[in-house]
Amino acid sequence: MAFLSRLRIGRNTSNGAPRSRRIPALIFWSPLALAFGNYFWTVKLISGRSMQPTLNPDSSLWRDFGLFDKFSIRSRHAYQRGDIVAIVSPEDPRRMIVKRILAIEGDTVRTLPPHPDPEVRVPVGHVWVEGDDSFHTDDSNRLGPIPAALIESKLSNGAYGGNFEFRP
């Protein structure tokens, strides 16, 4: 915060607005922070057990935080099979779901029970997502293939080779 107050506008001018009418530094610089969270990386709290044992395992007492990468999805549309992604729920725009991409357009998937067909070909521009815990998940087996435009961000892979992992 000391860094922000040093950058405050009009600090060195004597002829500017009186001190009480200046915009506080935190508000003045908030667009930078908001745009960073909107375009690059955000931290999200993950709830629910559909991604066990990868996320929210029973051994953990707290819910997991995830560092989600928006840049590669928004700007490059770079998603692959195996990525864990945050998706806006196709049924309710206010909800987000976290699932793993199993198949991308053109692939053929063998489905699990709630789905009516035994095999499905994923249509153009869609992905097939499933939770890691196939018993407690609301995924493509019920919702069908999901439009890739609904993918909002993906869980960043850390520099450690595996998934980014930090649990309190």
């Binding site: 725009p93 206010r94 249509p123 153009v124 521009g125 869609h126 439009p147 890739a148 435009a149 993918i151």
Partner: peptide
């Protein structure tokens, strides 16, 4: 209000066939 859409409204949306 993401669900406040009426019949006859003009909307823009991301293409379900091509996310870009």
């Amino acid at each position: 209000n993401p669900t406040g859409i009426a019949r006859g409204d003009l909307i823009t949306l991301y293409s379900p066939l091509d996310p870009s």
